[in-house]
Design a protein around this nucleic acid. Sequence first.
DNA 1: TTAAAAAATGTAAGCGCTTTCAAACGAAAT
DNA 2: ATTTCGTTTGAAAGCGCTTACATTTTTTAA
Lengths: 333, 333
Amino acid sequence: MATIYEVSEAAGVSLATVSRVMNGNARVSERTRQKVLDAMDALGYRPNAIAQSLASNRTNSIGLLVSELHGSYFGELMSTIELILKKHGKHVIITAGHVEEHRETEAIDFLTSRRCDALILHAEAVSDDYLTKLGKSGVPVAVVNRKVEGMEDQCFVADNENGGYLATKAAIDNGHKKIGYISGPLFKQDATERLNGHVRALNDAGIDNEPTLLFEGDYHESSGQEGFGKLFSDNADLSVLVCANDEMASGAMTAAREAGLNIPDDLSVIGFDNVLFSRYLHPKLTTINNPVHSMGEMAAAWILENVYDIKSPEPIVHVFEPELVERDSLGPL
Amino acid sequence: MATIYEVSEAAGVSLATVSRVMNGNARVSERTRQKVLDAMDALGYRPNAIAQSLASNRTNSIGLLVSELHGSYFGELMSTIELILKKHGKHVIITAGHVEEHRETEAIDFLTSRRCDALILHAEAVSDDYLTKLGKSGVPVAVVNRKVEGMEDQCFVADNENGGYLATKAAIDNGHKKIGYISGPLFKQDATERLNGHVRALNDAGIDNEPTLLFEGDYHESSGQEGFGKLFSDNADLSVLVCANDEMASGAMTAAREAGLNIPDDLSVIGFDNVLFSRYLHPKLTTINNPVHSMGEMAAAWILENVYDIKSPEPIVHVFEPELVERDSLGPL
DNA sequence: TTAAAAAATGTAAGCGCTTTCAAACGAAAT
DNA sequence: ATTTCGTTTGAAAGCGCTTACATTTTTTAA
């Protein structure tokens, strides 16, 4: 690999001049500029980004922490963020935290040791306190899908409470009264909020919030199956199942079908997230759209604006509204 | 951020000693070791990976190029590779090439400028020639899902030809004779190979390979719909549709259903890849499993062995066999 | 006890760049 | 021609580490 030194030699100019033409941030006469450019591609020169970063104290890279590298939720998040940042010449360094505290902190350590210019975190296991401290440590941090007290202006979240409300409201609007709810693991913020929304919708409609109609799942498909089993055996007159995500809705549908129920005639099902496969389910899943795209986009825009002084065309928004996606799994009572 | 210099000062030792305890690659007496460790966490010291890389000419990171950051195929590939490399303290830097030549080369340039210790490439748009040159340029390169002439021992591929064969063979074994084939875009190696396998199965069974039974799609769902429309209007007696991937199979199923056909009673459908949603389709899709996991795993193992001298427990294999996944969309004639 | 060998630590050069500051240059003004 | 001022270039320090080599300290053997 040719170095800047060899280029300077070949072009007959100093290191500084080569650096100047590379960065285009200082005047260089057209003649020497050309000499340098020629020398560069004669040598096949590629600047060493590592050395550049060390010298300039800038990496032009943004660290992104997600929980997993697979799954359509994270796929969309990563894609969105990468697209918008790359458009501005910035690069994303992605790591996975696997919803385990030590792996998340490890991943964040990695990103900071890499001296990322900023971080975008979808951190689920780490404490609020940790995030607050990190936020004060110097690196600009944007948090996705989590509201951390005291750093609201760096958080980009969906209004999960309202999403939960919308789901249950849709059931109620269809005449349902016996509404089962399969929640996510309640240590997760979004799961609690969605449940709160559900309860509010129930209250608004004057429907009792019976404990036997609630099942706490873990967001995985299998717990949707379990959830159906438990709720249905306790409540034979159950007419709709509101699920805190699409995976569990899918599991519930499978279990319901195995129990001989027809969806939505015997049992309606509603999901949450609107992940890719929800429209491949049969019947197509009625669900709540989770505005992942918007959250990612805005987090990226916020970084561009606050770290690189690249103004966003749109105003920065921190909370995004979920919407009901009406398909075929919710029917009238 | 504290630097190694401040640590050395605080601990009352030289830079070199601090570096030694950090890297654990040289003897340091237990007493000074402890002094240094204490100084480190008193200062909250984090080594600067950028500086380490520059000095040591090692980044401990592997560049990974995928076509997209979303989609279950790439999700699985990224997850697999990250998991195994992280287990050995290596990090993955992921970039997306979006199946466009200049974006792929740009992404690769980025990875090399970052001085990755090695590259794992799922490159679709770039030429064989380019890859060959890159392979000779010094960075160790592993290629996934593509066989490049002259660098076979760095390529990790599925036996797509045989996969295509298995799909059509399954149709034939079920008594079908009028077999429609929706291929992928034939500029892609895997699409061509799958088609070749299809043709071989036809020949083996003595079935004519009629041009009106072939439709070239683009691997997207919509072209599955088109494909069905075209093939079905030309061949009213079509009894099975073999599709070169699951997305197109899904599209074809939708279109068939809209045309009033029942699957698999009126028309059987077979997919390829066995992506996540294939089992959420209705009926569940019979498909060919694409051994993405194995390819990723092996590419990672190869890098560990060849770049970091970490021996793989399993022998290195370069070609992986797809398998038929029997579900509900293929029925007897 | 002393010399030799082994272990622990320090010194300093260098990784490939950026960037400040000073020097050289050229054109316009006198 | 000389001065002046803006433009272009170069010299050199430094970013935070690693590592070869030199030096000092400790251990072992005689």
